[in-house]
Write a protein that binds this DNA or RNA. Structure first.
Length: 521
RNA sequence: GACCCUAUAGUCUAGCGGUUAGGACACCUCCCUUUCACGGAGGUAGCCCGGGUUCGAUUCCCGGUAGGGUCGCCA
């Protein structure tokens, strides 16, 4: 922990022109400097221990020391970031990356920063940024620093802004000039290229361990890479590093697809005389068949889960289970508990496949256990999305109708098919089921049931049940012989809420109407 | 092609130098039941392959295979 803290301090100290005053204060406090790379194995060892994550207020670094070493160390609080590109789309894997960053920040009492990587101006629209902000909000991942609205004119919150890369041009220009002055960058065909290190680079990673990255055969031909395009736009590798440096990011938690890129980033940090942050490359999320989840694949976009009526808390829980485990054979874990248990060294190294069936199960668990108010709210939203105008009905009716569905559905997207009959006058009968249920024999029985219902003065589920059973006895049939046709007549479906409760909610008038309609066919 | 990561049932995972290899989803059977869902009981199914180390490897090492990633004036 001490060495890690020291490394972070050096980074902060060496980052010139820091916009954050806390870093300057810390800078003065540094009393001991360790050469970059000299403590890698130790920091690996240290981070694997239980004391890796320091739970502390994120205010000022606290002083600590250990006997024997005689080194004063100031713990710097964790600063992590989620840095998506506004493509108009938030990938489920990106959402998981955001989640793990958020969890680590919350676990350590650190800071979670949102930065918009909009260097490609063609993609930079306010709508595209809003997709990201709304996605994170939906999941409940609040950020401590970053934009508050999708517009680049928004200064956002936090003191390390602007948080849109498109607004940070001068910062990049200054750093590029610095590299040029050092002879580590040069003009080439109108672009600027970085003079890459020619030796293998070790990437210390909290999840994977130390990774030694050799040059590929293509890179051996020309290891240098473009950092500023010929049109003047800086490229990802450059801005990513500069922003992480300027924003004093201590831990870079990102998808494993960036692992080998990190060699370039580390070289860039060194060229800027700054110790790189700690890296943690988390495994990717694959399709259920093991292929890469691309934009086109169903379920790749976070929006899908909102539209299909999953509860965000269930999705968050499920995402936590991909590449991480709370152990002790537990599946359902509250966010507070995940925050308490989560840590980087315990993140798995292998990719995980997205199993929609398990998400579905978890979603059902959450829906069953959520408060009635929230259930009604999400249920009404789902019905509205499905095209039902629930506002046409009284609040009491809506509420009673929805309450018969609580604990029955596993996903709000199922609600329209399950309970849509409450909110329409046109009950659609499934032809096959109708033919099966409305045999001449059943019609006679339904007629008897209708007559019994018509004579009721109270139309509650208790009365309805006893009435139906009484009719069944009179007809010498099982209750089911009446239940099924009645359900089909009133709902058009073989599956749905408890029949007696649903009849009560529908009310005598509607029930008789629906039965009459079937008998008239 | 080169480089990097990974490997426990169909899927997500726990675990370990000696375990009847644990849990969950899914699947199957039965029970409960007004349908569905829930709940209860039970079941099928797993340590990628080959060497090495060891008294003993699923576990440690090496190789292979397979899957994934990277090598852009995309991010």
């Amino acid at each position: 922990m001490f060495l890690v803290g020291t490394m972070q301090l050096i980074r902060g100290a060496q980052a010139a022109g820091l916009p954050c005053s806390a870093a300057r204060r810390t800078l003065r406090a540094v009393s001991h400097v360790v050469p970059i790379g000299s403590t890698l194995s130790q920091s690996q060892e240290v981070v694997a221990g239980p004391a890796t994550t320091v739970r502390e207020p994120r205010a000022l670094p606290t002083q600590s020391h250990r006997s024997g070493a005689e080194i004063n160390v100031y713990r710097m609080s964790v600063r992590v970031r989620f840095a998506p590109s506004p493509t108009g789309f938030l990938h489920i894997g990106g959402a998981r990356t955001a989640l793990f960053n958020w969890l680590y920040a919350r676990h350590t009492g650190g800071t979670f920063i949102l930065r918009i990587e909009d260097t490609d101006s063609a993609r930079n629209t306010q709508e595209a940024v809003e997709v990201i902000l709304n996605g994170l909000r939906w999941l409940g991942l609040d950020w401590d620093e970053g934009p508050t609205i999708g517009s680049v004119s928004d200064p956002g919150k936090g003191r390390c802004g602007p948080y849109f890369q498109s607004q940070r041009g001068p910062i990049y220009q200054k750093r590029v000039q610095e590299l040029k002055d050092k002879g580590l960058a040069y003009d080439h065909d109108g672009a600027v290229k970085f003079k890459m290190e020619r030796k293998p680079i070790v990437i210390p990673d909290l999840v994977v361990g130390n990774v030694t990255r050799e040059l590929t055969d293509r890179e051996k031909l020309d290891p240098d890479f473009v950092i500023v395009r010929s049109d003047g736009q800086p490229v990802f590798h450059l801005v990513n590093v500069i922003d992480d440096l300027e924003m004093r990011i201590t831990h870079v938690i990102r998808g494993e697809d960036h692992l080998t890129n990190s060699a370039k980033h580390i070289a860039l940090f060194r060229a800027l005389d700054v110790a790189p942050p700690q890296y943690a490359h988390i495994p990717l999320i694959l399709n259920i068949d093991g292929t890469k989840m691309s934009k086109r694949d169903h379920g790749a976009s976070l929006t899908t889960y909102l539209e299909e009526g999953y509860a965000p808390e269930a999705l968050v829980n499920y995402l936590c289970l991909l590449g991480w485990s709370p152990k002790e054979n537990r599946e359902k874990v509250t966010l507070d508990e995940v925050i308490r248990l989560f840590d980087l060294p315990q993140v798995l190294r292998h990719n995980a496949r997205f199993d929609i069936d398990k998400l579905h199960w978890l979603d059902g668990e959450y829906i069953r256990e959520m408060g009635d108010e929230r259930f009604r709210e999400l249920a009404a939203q789902a019905l509205t999305r499905a095209g039902y105008d629930t506002k046409k009905y009284s609040p009491g009716y809506l509420r009673a109708a929805l309450d018969t569905c609580k604990g029955k559905i596993k996903r709000f997207g199922e609600l329209a098919a399950y309970a849509g009959f409450y909110f329409t006058d046109e009950v659609k009968l499934d032809p096959a089921s109708a033919a099966k249920d409305f045999t001449p024999e059943n019609r006679d029985r339904l007629g008897r049931l209708r007559a019994a219902f018509a004579g009721l003065s109270t139309f509650d589920f208790v009365t309805l049940e006893s009435t139906l059973k009484k009719v069944a006895v009179e007809l010498a049939v099982k209750a089911g012989a009446l239940v099924h046709p009645a359900r089909m007549a009133c709902t058009g479906s073989a599956a749905g809420p408890s029949l007696y409760h649903l009849l009560e909610v529908l009310g005598k008038e509607r029930v008789l109407q629906r039965i009459d309609r079937v008998l008239a066919i």
